[in-house]
């Protein structure tokens, strides 16, 4: 499956300019995060008392926030937190969602009816709201946010995969495999699932896009990642009061966030544009 995924990515890189643009933006963000995981000029939580809301300087390359914390260091670790949570969210959403969707699409019947009703009910909520409800059930903090967002993302994956399975299961290769006596599970995951490659890839990319957005939103509201953990959403909400004196404290995390989302959305668009 992972090999297929890589193949798809390479094919899309070759074919779509949009995908390429998104890929390089995302690559830049990844490298930025990777660098941040290994080295930050300051500790992201150290407060430099003498330099609050400082501008760009040699001491603090991108300045400091209202508590005198180094912005570059906070960007480096904050982007990592956001990406980490997004990855966890998409993993949970994609794994649970495609299993449910595959089972519903393949077997159909009463199970499908009931599960799809529940999925429809969950779908009635915009995902940020669903995440809010789950956070209020589980509590906040990085792992709780992953669980909450992950569950909130299950319905959309389940729907997409179910749709794919509904069309694929009537193809000849499935009938043939069935006649050969191959087990249902094997057909589902080894025969049908790999054929949903591009759709899965674009769902995963859109999932990343939405997960970054949702995490930043929750942290912005103060119920996502908790201090002293840095997160881009939190940095934005903290910077709001100092917008007049130090607009850079808001612009920098905001721009990084836009780059992250732009990268994923361009790749997603690229995949979909030549389906």
């Amino acid at each position: 499956m992972i090999g297929r995924f890589m193949q798809r990515i390479l094919k899309n890189l070759e074919k779509s300019g949009m995908f390429r643009a998104g890929f390089f933006i995302t690559l830049f963000v990844f490298l930025f995060v990777l660098a941040g995981a290994m080295y930050t000029p300051w500790s992201p939580t150290t407060m430099d008392e003498g330099a609050r809301l400082a501008g760009f300087s040699a001491r603090h390359l991108l300045g400091t926030d209202h508590l005198g914390r180094d912005i570059l260091s906070r960007l480096l670790t904050g982007a990592g937190t956001t990406l980490f949570i997004a990855t966890g969210t998409v993993l949970i959403g994609a794994l649970c969602g495609s299993t449910i969707g595959a089972a519903c699409g393949y077997f159909g019947g009463v199970l499908d009816e009931i599960v799809m009703r529940i999925i429809d009910a969950l779908f009635a909520f915009p995902s940020i709201l669903l995440a809010l409800v789950f956070v209020s059930l589980f509590g906040s903090g990085r792992y709780h946010v992953i669980a909450a967002l992950g569950i909130a993302f299950v319905p959309s994956f389940a729907r997409t995969v179910r749709g794919e399975f509904l069309t694929e299961k009537n193809r000849d290769y499935v009938t043939k495999a069935r006649l050969q006596g191959i087990s249902d599970l094997r057909i589902m995951f080894l025969h049908i699932l790999p054929n949903t490659g591009d759709v899965m890839l674009s769902s995963v990319l859109i999932g990343f896009n939405n997960a970054v957005l949702a995490e930043a939103g929750l942290s912005f509201l103060g119920i996502g990642v908790q201090p002293p953990d840095a997160s881009l959403g939190r940095m934005l909400s903290e910077s709001q009061q100092y917008l007049f004196r130090a607009p850079m404290t808001a612009l920098l995390p905001g721009i990084l966030l836009v780059l992250m989302i732009l990268g994923f959305s361009l790749m997603g668009e690229g995949v979909r544009s030549h389906e």
């Binding site: 808001a250 905001g254 966030l257 836009v258 361009l266």
Partner: peptide, 18 residues
């Protein structure tokens, strides 16, 4: 348009305020 689409609502709010 592609860039505007990628701006999260709260960051847009901050940009508009600014």
């Amino acid at each position: 348009g592609q860039i505007t689409m990628s701006i999260p609502p709260f960051f847009m709010g901050i940009l508009v305020t600014l």
